[in-house]
Every structure is written in structure tokens, then in C-alpha cells.
Amino acid sequence: MNKKQSPPPKKRGATVAAVLCFVAAIAIVGTYTLGNSREARQNEKLAKTEETQSKEETTKSRGVGDGDAGDGTGGNTGELAGAEEAGSLVITNEDDTGISGENVENTDQTNPGERSTESNSDISSADTTAGAQQTAGQGVNVSFGEDSKLLWPVNGTVLMSFSMDKTTYFSTLDQYKYNPAVIISAAENDQVIAGTTGIVKSIDNIAETGTTVNIDIGNGYELFYGQLKDVQLKTGDYVEANSVIGYVSAPTKYYSTEGPNVYFEMRKDGQPINPVDYM
């Protein structure tokens, strides 16, 4: 019986080499495929991480806290806070996916500087009006008329009467001249009162009549009180009838013979008239 013939040694070697090459090729392909798979997963994780960071940065820049990206009210809260700091109101509508709708910006059309100027202008006007009311007697009308009456400024006798139609004798001057006022005797330091309501127009120091207070009593009428001292009023003050204007001073050199007195003059539209006609 014939024995089975074994392959020649050279043929077996070639077969083994082919098998080894095939196994090596499979191993190389598997290793390459596994490496690519791992690299792909790492790239995917990296991309997701970058996407998450980008979303968080976007959310923070819009003033939305964690977990509020998809909440419409949360988004509005952050944007409203930022808008208030910027001086404008920004209304943002967001759906449940967190996608922002169209921004509607509502800003005040008036420049803040203009508002400040207008406010200051309004305040200045109010102050001016208030000052005018105080000058006019806090709402009290200063309106003297032909039927109005005057109080005597001081208790005393008339030393020299009003006289503009003829001259009268002045003892100290030792001469005759016209007298546009009523000269009333008084004791030094006596109170001098206002004959009616009015507004102080001026306070002057005149050589002939000393400290003289001019009070506007309305409708072109004015009163002049001379030979005074210790006047506490100032220009623009409102005075009521019977209120103290000042006190009788020592007479000026023009009235040294007559002695202490009150110079009381009344004018209508700048022309002297007799105050006794209204007393």
C-alpha cells in the first residue's frame, strides 16, 4: 500500500507565509479601525463640549442664568436688567426652545439733558411765580382807590398842612414854599404804622426827610414816610395796614425848629395829593 505523500517543504513554507500575511493584514486593519473609532468618539465629545461652552457663553451674555435658556420669562428678566442700565427697555420674546424672537426697543424720545433743562425751567418759573405772589402780598390784591381810607401814621398834631396851590412858611428854613406832604408832630422813638396795605417800593436816605420809605399801595397811589429810623423792611416786602414801618427819629436840619415829626406824603401817578382827604 502506498503512503500519503507530504507536500514538499517549499510549498508548505509558502502557505504558512501567506497565512501569516493574511493574519497580519487583518490585525493591521482591525487596529486602524479601532484607532479611528476612538478618535472619532473623542472628536465627537470635544465638539459637544465646545458646543455646550458656546451655548453657556451665549446665555451668560444675554443675562440668562443656568436652566433659563429655554424659559421665556427668564430671558426677559436678564435682558430687562441690562436694558435698565442702558436707559432703554428691551422686550424679547422667546419660545420654549430658547430661540429669541425679534427685539422691540422702547426708548424715551426725550434727551435726559433736555428733560433736566425743562425741569429746571419749570422749577425756575415756579420760583418766580412764588416770588411774585410774595411781592404782591401772598395773593392779597394791593388796590387803593378813591373810596379807600388811610390810617394816620402816628398820633400827633399837624404842624404843616399839605399845600400845593400856595406857599406855606417853613420855620427852620425861614422861608415860604410849597409843601407836598403833611408834617405831623411826634415824639422820638414813637412807632410809625402803615396807613394801608402795600408793597415797599424803595427805602432811601434823603437829606431833607432822612430815612424815607416809599410804599406802592396800588392803582398809581404811593405813600412816603420820612424822618424814620430802625426800619426793618426791605424793598419788595408786603406790609399790612397798621403794621410797624419804623420809629420816629431825630429831625433832620431842615426841620430842627419843628422838632421830631413824621413826613407823610401821598402821590397819584407821580403827582402829590393831599393824604388827609383819604383819612
Score class of each variant (00 low, 15 high):
56 E>Y: 05
192 V>R: 10
1 M>H: 03
216 D>C: 03
125 S>K: 13
107 T>C: 04
230 D>C: 04
114 E>K: 12
99 I>S: 15
177 K>P: 00
68 D>P: 00
20 L>S: 05
195 G>P: 08
178 Y>G: 06
36 N>F: 02
162 F>I: 00
150 L>A: 03
118 E>T: 15
152 W>G: 02
146 E>F: 04
13 G>E: 13
236 G>E: 01
151 L>Y: 13
209 T>H: 05
248 V>Q: 07
56 E>L: 12
123 I>N: 12
201 K>V: 08
180 P>M: 10
172 T>R: 02
171 S>Y: 10
214 N>P: 10
17 A>H: 15
220 G>R: 04
143 S>N: 07
160 M>V: 04
200 V>C: 06
252 T>H: 06
140 V>S: 12
41 R>S: 03
140 V>L: 03
169 Y>E: 06
71 D>A: 03
249 S>G: 02
229 K>D: 04
180 P>A: 02
36 N>P: 00
208 E>M: 11
227 Q>M: 02
256 S>H: 10
244 V>C: 04
94 E>P: 11
275 P>M: 14
122 D>S: 11
181 A>E: 03
71 D>P: 02
149 K>H: 12
235 T>P: 13
38 R>H: 07
182 V>Y: 05
211 T>L: 04
34 L>W: 11
194 A>N: 07
127 D>E: 11
51 E>K: 04
166 K>P: 02
73 T>W: 02
239 V>F: 04
232 Q>Y: 12
194 A>C: 10
8 P>H: 10
24 A>D: 08
279 M>Q: 09
158 V>H: 02
218 G>D: 02
176 Y>W: 14
40 A>P: 13
93 N>I: 15
176 Y>Q: 07
239 V>H: 00
276 V>D: 09
48 K>C: 08
89 L>Y: 13
150 L>Q: 07
118 E>L: 06
256 S>L: 13
72 G>Q: 09
227 Q>A: 01
242 N>D: 12
154 V>I: 13
113 G>K: 13
72 G>R: 07
62 R>N: 05
84 E>A: 10
202 S>D: 15
75 G>P: 01
263 Y>F: 14
223 L>Q: 03
169 Y>G: 00
